[in-house]
Design a protein around this nucleic acid. Structure first.
Length: 778
DNA sequence: AGTCCGACTTGGATACAACTAC
DNA sequence: GTAGTTGTATCCAAGTCGGACT
C-alpha cells in the first residue's frame, strides 16, 4: 500500500513548501506554483538577507526509473488488459448541456457496478511512485544587521518604534488605530486576557460621530440555539432604495444617425447606463451589445423603437462626456460639500445600517438595494449587457419578527410581502430579473449570525484534520475499485484534496459562462504527459504528469502541471478513453454524489471543507517554517505574507496586474538606487568621522542602511504579490485563530495582520485565542 | 434519481478614502 | 493644489450545498 509514503497521505501540504522544492510534495507543489497561471512564484529574495530558497531539483528522482521502463512494457499489456476489462466502461457522455435532461443518449448499456478487474491488481501493487523528496529549503535567516530591537513588551501599542521612518504609512495607520482603540478602550482584546465586562456602553464619550455599535456581543460564550433557529427576534428598517433617476439636462443629448434625438426618460436612463460604460471593454463585445440593445429597445416608446434600430448609429458621446464631467465635479467639491455628503451617508447608515437580533445591535452588510444598470456577467457570460431593472418596494420581501416594528415602505408603496421566518438569516429579499435569482440583504460578517457560521466552518476543517489520514487512505484504496464510479470519485477527491479544486456543480449553459470545477472537468481540460518538465526552467522532467487548463470560478484560468501517482495517471487514461474533448472527465460523478459520500466519511464533510482545511494547514505550516523568532516585526510580517501567499497560490486567487504595477516597480527601483547612494555616502562619512561626529555618523549610517533594506524587502513583497490576491484567502479560508496565535507567539501586533474590519469579523477568534497557550490551533 | 431552487459563502473588480510626493 | 499610490469598503456575480419537488 502506498499509504504512508504517499505524498498525499503523509505530507500533502503539511510540509510542502510551495514554490520551493522539498518534501514529498516538492515536485508537485513546485509545479503547481510555478505554472499556476500566475507565473512563477519562486520565492527568492534579492537581498539575500532574508531567505533563499532552493528550487526543487529532485523533481523526479522518481523511483520510477525502474518503473518507467516497466511501465513502458506494461503499458501496452495493461492497456489491453484494462481496456478489455474495462471495455465495458463506456463513458457516459452526459455533457450536461444544462439542467435539461437533454441526454437520453445513455445508449450504452454499460453496467458500471461490478466491474471485473481481473487485470490490474498486479500492476498496481507496487506503485509507490511518490517518493518523498528531501526537504531542502533554507530556514529564514535573521536579517543580521538589523538590531531588531523588538519592543518586547508593549509592542502592540507602539509597535512602530522598531520601524524606522520609511514606514510612515504604518505609523499613520497606527495612530488612527490607536485613536480608535482609545475610544473603544477595553474591548480591544490584544493581550489583555480579561476584557472589561461589557463596557459601560452608555456614557461613552464618543469623540466623533463615527462611533459605531459599540456593544460587543460575545456570542461565542453563549449557548447555541437549537438547529434551524436563526433568531428569536429580528428588527430592522428594511432596505434603502436607489435614488430616482434624474433626467439629463436638455443640452445633453443622445444622437442617432448623426442627429439629436430626445429620448423618453426611461430610454434615456438606460442609454445612460451604456454611455457610462463606453470606455469599458464590455461595450466591444458582441453579446453585450446585442443583449443591451435588445433590452434597451424594450424600454423605448414605440416611436423610439421604430426609429432606433441600429446600435451602431447610436451616439452616446455627449452623455458620456456629461457623466465624466459630473464625476469631475464631484471630485472637485470643496471640503464642506464633501463633508455634507459624508454626513448624509452616515445618516443613512444610522438608520438602515443596523438590525437588532435577539436584542443585540448588529451591522447590516448590504442595506442598499442594487441600483438598476447593465448586467456585468464575467467571462463569456451569455447574458452580459442585459438590463437589470430598478427594484421597487413591491418587489421586496421583508423578514422580521412578528412583534417588531415592521419597516416602513417608501411613501405610496407597499412591500411585496412581510414574513417572519426565523429559519433564515436574511432581512429582505427580492428576485433579480436577469437570472431570476434571489438577492438578499444580510448581516455584516462581524455579526453573530455570520461569525458563528464561520467559526463552525473552521471547526469542521479542524475535525477533518483529525481524519484526513484515514480519508486519504480510503480514497487511495478506491483508486483500485472495481467500480468505475468509485474510481472516479476517488480520483476527483484526490484532486480536490491535493489541488484545492472546487467541487464543480453543473451549470446551465445558457445562463452562465462556461466554467468548471473538479466534478465538471471535461476531457479537454486535462492533458496527460508520461514525462515532461513541470516548469520550463526545471532541470528534470517529471513522470505521470497531469496538466490542467481550464476556467474556474469567475472565469479565472487555472493552469497547473502536477505529478500524480501512477495509479491516478492510469485511471485518468481510462476515464478519457473513447471520449471526445467535450465529454465529462468524470462522467459517473457529480457534486451531490461526492458530497453524499463525504458525509459518510465524516459528519459535515463536503468538498469545500478540503479547501478550507488545506488552506489553513498550509498557512500554519508555512508560518512555522518561515518565521524566524529573531526577526523584527517587519520581517516577520514578510514571512506572514509569504505564508499567506502560498495559500493564495494554492487556491488560485488571482488578480489582474494593475497597469500601474510596472511603473510603481520602476519608481521603487529608483528609490532603492537613491537610497543606496545615500548609504554609500553615509558610509564614507562614517569612515572619516572622528569623535562625537563618528557616533552620529554611525547612527545615520545605520538608519539609512535600515531603510535601504526595508525598501528591498518591500520590493520583493510587492513583486511577488503582483498577481496574487491575498485578501480572499485571509477572509474566507484561513482560520483566524492561526494568525492570532502566531501574533501572540511572535509578539506581532494583531493590527499588522488584521485591519479594523477584519478584527471585527474575527473578534471571536481574537478573544478565544487569548487565554490559550496553544501556539498553533490547527 | 434527477432537477430545481433557496440560502448562504466566496470572489474579483471597482469605487473611494487616505496619504504622500511634488 | 494635484497627481499618484495604496489600502479599504462596497458591490454584486458566481460559486456551494441541502432540501423540496416531481
Amino acid at each position: 500500500m502506498a499509504e504512508v509514503s504517499s505524498p498525499v497521505l503523509s505530507n500533502h501540504h503539511h510540509n510542502g513548501e510551495y514554490g520551493n522544492g522539498d518534501s514529498a510534495y516538492g515536485s508537485q507543489d513546485s509545479g503547481m506554483n510555478s505554472s499556476n497561471g500566475n507565473g512563477k512564484v519562486t520565492e527568492e529574495f534579492s537581498n539575500g538577507d532574508v531567505k533563499k530558497e532552493v528550487k526543487d531539483e529532485a523533481v523526479n528522482s522518481d523511483d520510477d526509473v525502474p518503473w518507467g521502463q516497466l511501465m513502458e512494457r506494461e503499458k501496452k499489456k495493461k492497456q489491453n488488459a484494462e481496456s478489455d476489462s474495462e471495455d465495458e466502461y463506456k463513458p457516459e457522455k452526459k455533457r450536461k448541456s444544462k439542467s435539461k435532461k437533454a441526454d437520453s443518449d445513455s445508449e450504452d448499456d454499460y453496467k458500471p457496478e461490478p466491474m471485473e478487474e481481473e487485470e490490474g491488481k498486479g500492476d498496481y501493487e507496487d506503485d509507490d511512485d511518490d517518493v518523498p523528496l528531501s526537504v531542502k529549503y533554507g530556514t529564514p535567516e535573521p536579517s543580521s544587521a538589523k538590531k531588531s530591537k523588538k519592543k518586547k513588551k508593549k509592542v502592540s501599542e507602539s509597535d512602530d518604534e522598531d520601524d524606522s521612518d520609511d514606514d510612515m504609512i504604518e505609523k499613520k495607520k497606527k495612530k488612527k488605530e490607536k485613536k480608535e482603540k482609545e475610544s473603544k478602550s477595553k474591548s480591544t482584546p490584544s493581550s489583555k486576557p480579561k476584557k472589561e465586562v461589557k463596557q459601560e456602553t452608555s456614557p461613552v464619550k464618543r469623540k466623533k460621530k463615527e462611533e459605531e455599535p459599540e456593544e460587543i456581543w460575545e456570542w461565542w460564550k453563549e449557548e447555541k440555539k437549537p438547529a434551524g433557529v436563526k433568531w428569536n427576534s429580528l428588527a430592522h428598517k428594511g432596505p434603502l432604495f436607489a435614488p430616482d433617476y434624474e433626467p439629463l439636462p436638455d443640452h445633453v443629448h443622445f444622437k442617432y444617425d448623426g442627429k439629436v434625438y430626445k429620448l423618453s426618460p426611461e430610454a434615456e436612463e438606460v442609454a445612460g447606463f451604456y454611455a457610462r460604460m463606453i470606455d469599458h471593454e464590455y461595450t466591444t463585445k458582441e453579446a453585450f451589445n446585442k443583449n443591451f440593445f435588445k433590452d434597451w429597445r424594450k424600454v423605448m416608446t414605440s416611436k423610439e423603437r421604430e426609429h432606433i434600430t441600429d446600435l451602431k448609429k447610436c451616439d452616446f458621446g455627449v452623455i458620456d462626456v456629461y457623466y465624466k464631467e459630473q464625476s469631475e465635479i464631484r471630485k472637485a467639491m470643496t471640503k464642506d460639500q464633501k463633508l455634507k455628503i459624508k454626513e448624509e451617508r452616515e445618516a443613512e447608515v444610522k438608520i438602515f445600517g443596523f438590525a437588532f437580533i435577539d436584542g443585540h445591535k448588529q451591522k447590516v452588510a448590504n442595506f442598499r438595494i442594487e441600483p438598476p444598470g447593465l448586467f456585468r456577467g464575467r467571462g463569456g457570460h451569455p447574458k452580459m449587457g442585459m438590463l437589470k431593472k430598478r427594484i421597487q418596494p413591491e418587489d421586496v420581501i421583508i423578514n422580521c419578527s412578528k412583534d417588531s416594528a415592521i419597516p416602513e415602505p417608501p411613501k405610496g408603496h407597499k412591500w411585496k410581502e412581510v414574513r417572519h421566518d426565523n429559519a433564515v438569516t436574511w432581512l429582505c429579499s427580492w428576485t433579480e430579473n436577469v437570472l431570476g435569482q434571489n438577492k438578499y440583504i444580510m448581516l455584516n460578517p462581524s455579526s453573530k449570525i455570520k461569525g458563528e457560521k464561520d467559526y463552525e466552518k473552521y471547526e469542521t476543517a479542524r475535525r477533518l484534520k483529525k481524519r484526513i489520514d484515514s480519508i486519504r487512505a480510503v480514497y487511495q484504496e478506491d483508486w483500485k475499485s472495481k467500480e468505475m464510479r468509485v474510481r472516479q470519485r476517488a480520483v476527483a477527491l484526490y484532486f480536490i484534496d491535493k489541488l484545492a479544486l472546487r467541487a464543480g456543480n453543473e451549470k446551465d449553459v445558457d445562463e452562465a459562462a462556461d466554467t468548471v470545477g473538479c466534478c465538471s472537468l471535461r476531457v479537454e481540460h486535462i492533458k496527460l504527459y508520461d514525462k515532461i518538465k513541470l516548469n520550463d526552467d526545471d532541470k528534470h522532467e517529471a513522470e505521470n504528469v497531469v496538466e490542467f487548463d481550464f476556467l474556474g470560478k469567475d472565469s479565472i484560468r487555472y493552469f497547473n502541471r502536477v505529478h500524480v501517482e501512477k495509479r491516478v495517471y492510469k485511471n485518468l487514461k481510462i476515464f478519457m478513453e473513447n471520449k471526445s474533448p467535450g465529454d465529462d472527465l468524470f462522467d459517473r460523478l457529480d457534486t451531490a454524489t461526492l458530497n453524499e459520500h463525504l458525509r459518510t466519511l465524516m459528519p459535515g464533510l463536503t468538498v469545500k471543507v478540503f479547501r478550507t482545511y488545506n488552506a489553513s494547514i498550509t498557512l500554519q505550516d508555512q508560518l512555522m517554517k518561515l518565521t524566524n523568532p529573531k526577526d523584527n516585526v517587519h520581517q516577520k510580517m514578510l514571512s506572514y505574507n509569504r505564508a499567506n501567499r502560498q495559500v493564495a497560490i494554492l487556491c488560485n486567487h488571482q488578480r489582474s496586474v494593475p497597469k500601474t504595477h510596472e511603473k510603481a516597480m520602476e519608481n521603487l527601483e529608483a528609490k532603492i538606487k537613491d537610497k543606496k547612494k545615500e548609504v554609500d555616502a553615509a558610509k564614507k562619512e562614517l569612515e572619516h568621522a572622528r569623535g562625537a561626529a563618528k557616533e552620529k555618523a554611525q547612527k545615520k549610517y545605520d538608519r539609512l542602511k535600515d531603510q535601504y533594506k526595508r525598501l528591498k524587502i518591500n520590493r520583493t513583497d510587492k513583486d511577488e504579490n503582483k498577481q496574487i490576491a491575498l485578501g480572499t484567502s485571509k477572509l474566507n479560508y484561513l482560520d483566524p485563530r492561526i494568525s492570532v496565535a502566531w501574533c501572540k507567539k511572535h509578539d506581532v501586533p494583531i493590527e499588522k495582520v488584521f485591519n479594523k474590519t477584519q478584527r471585527e469579523k474575527f473578534r471571536w477568534a481574537i478573544d478565544m485565542t487569548n487565554n490559550s497557550d496553544e501556539e498553533y490551533i490547527f
